[in-house]
Simulated assay, not measured.
Amino acid sequence: MGTNVTQPSADPAGKRQALKAALAGGPLVVAPGVFDLISARLADAQDPAALYMTGYGTVASHLGVPDAGLATYTDMVGRVRQLAQHTRAPLIADGDTGYGGLLNVQHTVRGYEQAGAAAIQLEDQEFPKKCGHTPGRRVVAAEEMVKKIRVAVDSRDDPDFLIIARTDARTTHGLEEALRRIALYGEAGADMLFLEAPESEREMERIGGEADKPLVANMVEGGRTPVLSAERLRAFGYRMAIYPATGFLAAAAMLERVYADLVATGSSAGLDHQLYSFDAFSRLMGFEEVWAFDRRHADEPDNVAAAGSERTKDQED
């Protein structure tokens, strides 16, 4: 088991242009959800058109707490920077509510852009926010979110840095209000629209038929929205699908199995067929660069050993 790994790109502008080009036409843009540097490297090695930094998964892996508004801007912008620097694919980053009022939104947009993200997702929940597929979510007035979108658009330096506007109004206020909101957010200047948690294919088809900006579909296994094929989503009018939970749900399932077996048997013998190759993992993490550096700059192992023997002999003499 292994993955071909190439060097990450340090060109944020190029990544943003690549994302805009992918969204302009062609197949659905599929963005695997990433939540730490291991998941990011593994997903990036598959050469996706984009990666999605999931707030739920990032908060869980970084802080070990629910995605319920407990993470700060500082927590999250640091993760954005790490993920963007170590991957080639454009990174779409969850910016929650912007972490406060209008001035906070300006600060968040500028920080995410400077950290290397290709796009930021902002939502209209009240602060503190909650995961979009859990109960108890409340939204601010649509007019307040319109102001946030306008501030976000005005705050970016690179016009290719995309603003994704999300509404969580469907669950509490119904589909009509959610559709009204994304229309307003599009008029305010959002580049992409994200109507969270539609509850049927019929609703998704209607959303695709009425939206006048590129649409994001949120495919959460076990969530409120049906998980559809790429072809079906494209036919409904969606341009991008994010899969925020797929990676951490898969990792949790496998870790639970191997840890339970390890504790029960007292040994990892027999688990090889369930484990990633250690050599491949070392290469995934970039050890080939370390080995190449050592060959160029460090003493050869034989020379080091010989020098050590000579020093020992001299000391004995």
Rank of each mutant, 00 (worst) to 15 (best):
2 G>I: 03
2 G>C: 10
3 T>G: 06
11 D>R: 03
15 K>R: 12
19 L>E: 06
22 A>P: 02
22 A>H: 08
24 A>D: 14
31 A>D: 15
35 F>G: 02
38 I>S: 14
40 A>G: 15
42 L>T: 12
45 A>T: 11
45 A>D: 14
46 Q>K: 09
46 Q>N: 13
47 D>K: 05
53 M>C: 05
57 G>Y: 01
63 L>M: 14
63 L>E: 08
65 V>W: 03
66 P>D: 11
71 A>D: 15
71 A>Y: 14
71 A>H: 01
71 A>S: 15
72 T>Q: 12
73 Y>R: 13
73 Y>T: 08
75 D>K: 05
75 D>N: 13
76 M>I: 09
77 V>G: 06
80 V>M: 01
83 L>I: 13
84 A>P: 05
85 Q>I: 02
87 T>K: 05
87 T>W: 05
87 T>R: 02
88 R>H: 15
92 I>R: 01
92 I>L: 07
94 D>W: 00
94 D>M: 01
96 D>E: 10
102 L>G: 07
105 V>N: 11
106 Q>K: 01
108 T>N: 03
109 V>D: 00
112 Y>C: 01
113 E>N: 05
117 A>S: 07
117 A>H: 06
121 Q>R: 05
126 E>F: 02
127 F>A: 13
134 T>P: 00
140 V>F: 00
142 A>V: 12
148 K>D: 06
152 A>M: 01
157 D>M: 06
159 P>V: 07
160 D>C: 07
161 F>N: 03
161 F>T: 08
163 I>H: 04
166 R>C: 09
170 R>N: 15
171 T>Y: 06
173 H>W: 09
176 E>F: 04
178 A>V: 04
180 R>A: 12
181 R>M: 04
181 R>A: 02
181 R>V: 11
182 I>Q: 04
183 A>S: 15
186 G>N: 14
187 E>V: 12
188 A>K: 13
190 A>L: 06
195 L>T: 13
196 E>D: 11
202 R>W: 04
202 R>F: 13
203 E>G: 10
207 I>P: 02
207 I>C: 01
208 G>D: 11
211 A>F: 12
212 D>R: 09
213 K>S: 14
215 L>F: 06
221 E>Y: 10
221 E>L: 12
221 E>M: 05
223 G>V: 04
225 T>M: 08
226 P>D: 11
226 P>N: 05
228 L>H: 08
229 S>I: 00
233 L>K: 06
234 R>C: 02
236 F>Q: 09
238 Y>C: 05
239 R>T: 14
239 R>Y: 03
241 A>L: 04
243 Y>E: 09
243 Y>G: 03
246 T>S: 10
247 G>I: 00
247 G>T: 15
249 L>W: 12
251 A>R: 03
255 L>F: 07
257 R>H: 10
266 G>A: 11
267 S>K: 04
267 S>Y: 00
267 S>I: 07
268 S>V: 08
269 A>L: 08
269 A>I: 05
271 L>D: 14
274 Q>E: 15
276 Y>F: 13
279 D>L: 07
281 F>P: 04
281 F>I: 02
282 S>N: 10
283 R>I: 08
290 V>R: 07
292 A>N: 06
298 A>R: 10
300 E>G: 10
304 V>Q: 13
305 A>P: 00
308 G>A: 11
314 D>S: 14
315 Q>F: 11
